[in-house]
Design a protein around this nucleic acid. Structure first.
Lengths: 117, 117
DNA sequence: ATATGAACATTATGTTCATAC
DNA sequence: GTATGAACATAATGTTCATAT
């Protein structure tokens, strides 16, 4: 209950990008946030720290990615968490599901565009 | 605060359809719901009674539409509320704003489609 | 039973605080 | 100050209840 049938959640949207970052395997949380902030700047979408961390944590918990603590470049004793894909099969399955919702969401928005504008 | 910069809200989406129904001027709440349920059935979007009424109430409060109580067809003493546009200038201004958000939202979703699939 | 609407509950998401370096 | 994360607050939306016909 309480679950919308409308458009895919921001969380799911962000998780796609988290997986993409994890494939590179060398970025930590706040770097990812900064990257996405820049990347979406033209569309005025400003993801928050909270959503980025929650997206990463969910993917960890679901076993799609794993975390590694490494020393931050240029410093000593400053550990940051970087992420890597841990189960490519799960990733593929997850993405296939999200794609369905994404296609559906785009169709919903395009329908409104056609109906009203 | 607390406001997302992500995709346009369901409420805004539905309000577009409420305005369209109000232009016809002869449907009441649950009829609109039924119509939309059918209309979005292929995309598995199932708006709720609550969202439909809240969308109508917001538009009323904002002065874009007005309400008329009429006797339900075929019955006596059963009053239903139908809606009509009350201020076309406001409607145009509202739709222009929503279009910006709608275009932006479509762009966000298409970007994810391009980036991940 | 159908129609309207409010009250309530739960999610989804944003903001602030705590801890460590 | 930067990084991680939890705790907290609010907003968006779904579910249930009340009232009337």
């Amino acid at each position: 209950m309480g679950r919308t049938t409308f458009i895919l959640r921001q969380r799911a949207y962000l998780k796609l990008y988290m997986l993409q970052k994890a494939e590179k395997g060398n970025l930590y949380g706040l770097q990812i946030l900064g990257d996405l902030m820049d990347y979406f700047d033209d569309l005025a979408y400003k993801p928050t720290k909270s959503e980025v961390y929650k997206s990463l944590h969910e993917l960890l918990k679901e076993g799609l990615i794993k975390r590694k603590w490494i020393e931050k470049e240029g410093t000593e004793m400053q550990e940051v968490a970087v992420y890597q894909i841990s189960d490519m099969e799960k990733v593929k399955a997850y993405k296939a599901l999200v794609k369905i919702d994404l296609d559906r969401s785009i169709a919903l928005l395009n329908r409104a565009l056609k109906d009203h504008f």
